[in-house]
Write a protein that binds this DNA or RNA. Structure first.
Length: 838
DNA sequence: GCAAGGTC
């Protein structure tokens, strides 16, 4: 039997299709897809299926000195048991095996890991094929010319694994132990995350140190044929043109001169034609950046792209390449879009061009083609609005790369008024070119009318504006990813995750991300004692070492040992400063949790966590002062910069994914609840007076009533007046005025409610019981979507079939028990759905 | 429980 191993299931399926000419069939083994035809089997891994770690005896952070990790063994253990088992079972039957993982360094290492698992079972020959895109031609070529695994290249990847683990784990444990942060809130550092964090921290330092300067700008409106245009005052600053006037008296003088005359005389008119080249093909970074200008975070953009890739509508979204492969036929791909409603006309127009040649970027790699549509076009109804918007972006980017350049006409007019110079720059799009098919990049014009030298233009108004220089801007997520790429930090697959990790670790907040006090302290500590780990030089050095290993000039052991020696020297420095570092980190952690002074004793009020795990606001003077305030029960609290004037307290935001909301000032919220009275609306269905026939034998009518209640934590609910004896309750929305209407629900004996009755668009919530029942039915379907990553249409169908939870899914198919929730692909869910329907 | 890198 011949065994072929790919990096992912999708690649396995497509390679099987190509090599078998469509005759391959799929079956499942230990929950893993295996494609087969004749004597051949193809199995897809899930990236790395083994991972590096320390032996078990190093697991306890308290028992092991962090420095001991430096010389600890590094072992490789399976992390994807099902796939490893399947691979080994298949290997036992194999006479030959072919590694067909991705064509890059990490792919070589993943291939070598598969090779070693195969070697545990058989001595059958193992070869390696390399291809940059899964097209018929490339795949057939590759399989016709097999090569060997490049063990040196794989060793380069292993050096990275070992160095990252040893540095990351040893320093992470050291900082966490020194600050006594051992739970979920440990303090992490790493080769990629820490230099990335330093970028953000350095920018914040510049902002904090920034000293704004005053300057003035002067504008004049000039008239031509009854319509006006704006011109700006400028002067010659040592041969350079300057618009900013730094001295107020100078600005006043210029303003006085300009207002002293009624007209300006045109002294020069210059026209220039500029070519505006179409953009280059999308790699991951360029894609994230384009999606970000549509309002998507890096993480959102990538997960939508991954979904579009798995469903077959776009190519692999993780790529460094910006040059389309030779066998991408641009006109054939355009042809697919002809007649496809939304895109048809644009595709036809592009096909009419004399020459269809795509642009090329600077980066040409072997990993994957640039991101482009596959030519399989989804019906719009099958995608969510977001998915469609991203899909359209990818399609239009492809269109743009084969479209013609745009041309602009630039018009520059200089005029003299009272001895002062004015200028106006106009911009007109003469040939729209690619802008016609790619509306995302700016094509805005600035109208300046045709004028001639010597012409007199009336001045209708002169304005002087006092301004201040602005501090540098914070990095936005896509700018940060771009900078990481420039500095070689992370990879196309990991950069967006690294940023997400900084959020999770409590190092950055908000968008654009701001560093927390803790982040500043971590970077400071690292700069002082382990400068290497916050500098991008560590990555540069590692890259150089990896290249040397890949070229056979250095050995993995030498490189790893040198790195270990370097880390030992770092620990020599750290040893004596443990206390000092710990204290600094602890103070910073406290600063991030501080809301303001306690009204009872003046100490700080802090966000704290109870033993049960819920958050509340408590006084730092505990146990002497026992003052507390409640916080909402959902989400992780985050202290905002916003501030309540009345109570001198920072506002709090509760982070809970899509349910994130701003709680505001905890004292205001508590006081609001104290001042409001419960509003009774009807009988409690659990313990109120109900008609005799609706009551079960054991039920007792205690006379409980339902009331609208405001809790001190800021939440509102409809609850029983006999609480806590009866804990019946229904949730109400957090925001908006609640009013009770005349309309009445006969079934539940309750009035209908309206939220925000005063606004133009009130929400008619209706009977609170009916509303809650509808809400539960709706969220069951949403939960299912979240669990399985399936589309809403499928989830609804499953809901209709009575499957409303993962547990129900498992009941329907015991095989699912072995599958990780996150590992459930859309294809699998569709299979289960088919089974259920049959 | 630590990293970064694959993958879902």
């Amino acid at each position: 039997m011949r065994l072929i191993i790919t990096e992912k299931d999708n690649a396995a399926r497509r390679i099987a299709e190509i090599l078998s000419e469509g005759s391959a069939s799929a079956s499942r083994q230990n929950g893993v897809n295996v494609y087969r035809w004749g004597n051949t089997r193809v199995v897809g891994l899930s990236g790395h299926v083994v991972g590096v770690d320390f032996p078990e005896e190093y697991n306890d952070w308290r028992d092991v000195e962090p420095v001991e990790l430096i010389d600890a063994d590094v072992t490789k253990e399976p992390t994807q048991e099902n796939i490893v088992t399947t691979l080994k079972q298949l290997a036992r039957e194999a006479d030959e095996a072919t590694i067909a993982t991705d064509y890059d360094r990490e792919g070589e290492l993943i291939g070598k890991e598969a090779y070693e698992l195969i070697r545990e079972e058989t001595d059958a020959p193992v070869d390696r094929v390399r291809f940059s895109s899964i097209t018929e031609r490339e795949v057939r070529d590759a399989f016709a010319n097999p090569d060997d695994i490049d063990f040196d290249l794989a060793a380069a990847g292993e050096a990275r694994q070992i160095i990252d683990l040893v540095w990351g784990a040893a320093l992470t444990r050291f900082l966490s132990l020194s600050a006594r942060q051992l739970g979920d809130d440990f303090i992490s550092v790493g080769r990629v995350q820490s230099p990335t964090l330093k970028l953000i921290v350095d920018r914040e330092r510049e902002i904090q140190a920034f000293d704004p300067e005053d300057y003035w700008e002067i504008f004049a409106d000039l008239q031509k044929n009854g319509s006006g245009f704006e011109a700006q005052y400028f002067y010659d600053d040592d041969g350079k043109e300057a618009e900013r006037v730094w001295v107020e008296d100078d600005a006043d003088d210029a303003y006085a001169d300009l207002t002293g005359v009624d007209a300006a005389t045109v002294t020069s008119v210059r026209r220039r034609t500029r070519t505006d080249s179409p953009p280059t093909p999308f790699n991951t970074t360029a894609f994230i950046s384009a999606a970000s200008s549509l309002g998507y975070s890096a993480q959102q953009a990538m997960s939508i792209a991954e979904e579009l890739y798995t469903t077959g509508y776009i190519t692999y979204p993780r790529t460094d390449n910006t040059v389309y492969p030779d066998d991408l036929e641009e006109d054939a791909l355009l042809d697919e879009f002809v007649g496809a409603g939304h895109f048809g006309e644009d595709a036809e127009k592009l096909l009419e061009q004399d020459d269809i040649t795509a642009t090329e970027g600077d980066e040409e790699t072997t990993d994957h083609p640039p991101i482009h549509p596959t030519g399989e076009i989804p019906p719009k109804v099958d995608l969510s609005d977001d998915e469609w918007e991203i899909y359209e972006l990818v399609v239009r980017r492809f269109f743009a790369t084969v479209a013609e350049a745009a041309t602009w006409e630039h018009l520059r007019v200089v005029a003299d008024a009272g001895g002062r110079s004015l200028k106006a720059n106009g911009k007109r799009l003469v040939e729209p070119g690619y802008h016609e098919v790619y509306p995302y990049s700016s094509a805005s014009e600035n109208h300046v009318p045709d004028v001639e030298e010597g012409e007199e233009l009336a001045i209708s108004e002169v304005r002087m504006e006092a301004k201040q220089t602005q501090p540098p801007r914070r990095y936005g997520q896509s700018r940060l990813i771009q900078t990481m790429e420039d500095k070689g930090l992370g990879t196309k697959s990991t950069r967006h995750n690294s940023i997400e990790k900084l959020y999770d670790r409590g190092y950055i907040e908000g968008d654009p991300p701001r560093p927390t006090t803790l982040a500043m302290a971590v970077v400071e500590a690292a700069e002082e004692f382990a400068d290497h780990v916050v500098s991008d030089e560590m990555t540069a050095r590692l890259e150089a070492d990896m290249t040397a290993i890949a070229n056979g000039e250095e050995s993995l052991d030498t490189v790893a040992d040198e790195s270990r020696e370097m880390l030992k020297r770092v620990f020599d420095e750290l040893r004596d400063s443990r206390e000092e570092i710990g204290e600094h980190l602890q103070e910073s952690l406290k600063a991030d949790k501080t809301l303001g002074p306690c009204p009872k004793c003046g100490e700080d009020m802090l966000v704290r966590r109870s033993r049960q795990g819920s958050y509340f606001v408590g006084c730092d003077g505990f146990p002497e002062c026992r003052n507390t305030l409640p916080l909402p029960s959902t989400g992780e609290p985050q202290v905002l910069e916003d501030h309540c004037e009345e109570h001198d307290m920072h506002h709090v935001k509760m982070l809970a994914g899509r349910d994130t909301f701003v709680h505001g000032c905890p004292r205001c919220e508590a006081e609001k609840a104290d001042e409001s009275e419960d509003e009774v609306i009807g009988p409690c269905p659990e313990c109120g007076v109900a008609p005799e026939e609706q009551r079960g034998d054991g039920d007792e009518a205690e006379g409980g009533e339902l009331a609208i209640k405001h809790l001190r934590s800021g939440s509102r609910l409809v609850g029983c007046t006999r609480y806590p004896d009866c804990d019946y309750s229904l949730p109400l929305p957090r925001n908006g005025d609640i009013s009770v209407t005349e309309a009445f629900c006969e079934e539940h004996d309750l009035p209908e409610l309206v939220i925000d009755a005063d606004s133009d668009d009130p929400w008619e919530l209706g009977c609170p019981i009916c509303n809650y029942e509808e809400y539960q039915a709706r969220t069951a379907v949403e939960d299912l979507e979240d669990l399985s990553g399936i589309g809403s249409a499928t989830a609804e169908k499953l809901g209709d079939a009575g499957v409303d939870s993962l547990a129900a899914l498992r009941e329907a198919d015991p095989d699912i028990v072995a599958t990780e929730v996150q590992g459930v692909s859309a294809t699998q869910v569709r299979e289960w759905q088919d089974e259920l329907e049959a």
